[in-house]
Design a protein around this nucleic acid. Structure first.
Lengths: 123, 123
DNA sequence: TTGACATGAAACCAAATGGTTTCGTATAAT
DNA sequence: ATTATACGAAACCATTTGGTTTCATGTCAA
């Protein structure tokens, strides 16, 4: 069973600076919409829509508490970004790449098995 | 001196699957537009436009060779992505984060100095 | 010198994106 | 009971995005 059909993918979710900043704020503590939107020059509704996109990408989770909705960071999907980036590690970090991959290998899915085309998986 | 005013930022550049695949292809060898576009279901012109966006983000370099234009991967700007991601490392990889940062520290710019808000820098 | 090839520029287009304002509704406070 | 707060949904809008086709130009080959 899939993990909740990601309508928006992570790459697209983090493409917007507002959304990256939201993730940054949420990485410190969970927060309701109004608290979050106080950090932005746009309407609360706009922030709310960004949150929904993050939610669809699986990057945040919502929890209703009374009349407010708490948003909490869910960093797991960033793993995909990490994997993708991992493919290019060899370029700027040749010698240490192997070690790094080893270090990261507590998650088996995270290691690119070698110089492969990549990205063929999505779409 | 800046490195060529990045009109498109890296985050946005890699948001598109076609562009990610282009980077993948170019990571194996440099190629002219026509060779690249043979891997996509869209017109050569469309691929060309994607390449320009990658170029504006500093992710590829162009070199004219006779009547063709060779495109070559320039992975350096991915460093920014890496730095940004690094901020979230602590979440899924707590114990090993320190070691990883150490390993990566051959590039001084690459280490986030601690739990900071982040992203305040851009925009 | 006459084609064929490789490419970017231009004009165009539909759909997605990032905002807005307005409204309805649920919860909390008085 | 009434009012204020927190929020999402809806309708709307301008701009950006990702694609197309057509055209002009430069280069290689016969």
């Amino acid at each position: 069973m899939a993990e909740a059909a990601p309508k928006h993918d992570v790459f697209q979710a983090i493409a917007d600076p507002t959304r990256r900043k939201l993730l940054g704020l949420l990485s410190e503590q969970e927060m309701p919409v109004t608290a979050l939107s106080s950090h932005f020059p746009m309407s609360r509704t706009a922030v709310s829509k960004h949150l929904r996109i993050l939610s669809e990408a699986g990057l945040v989770a919502e929890q209703k508490v009374g009349r407010e909705t708490r948003y909490r960071l869910q960093p797991e999907p960033l793993q995909e970004l990490r994997d993708w980036l991992g493919y290019f590690e060899r370029y700027w970090n040749n010698k240490l790449a192997a070690l790094k991959l080893l270090v990261e290998s507590d998650d088996p899915a995270s290691l690119p098995k070698g110089p492969r085309p990549l990205d063929e998986r999505r779409e």
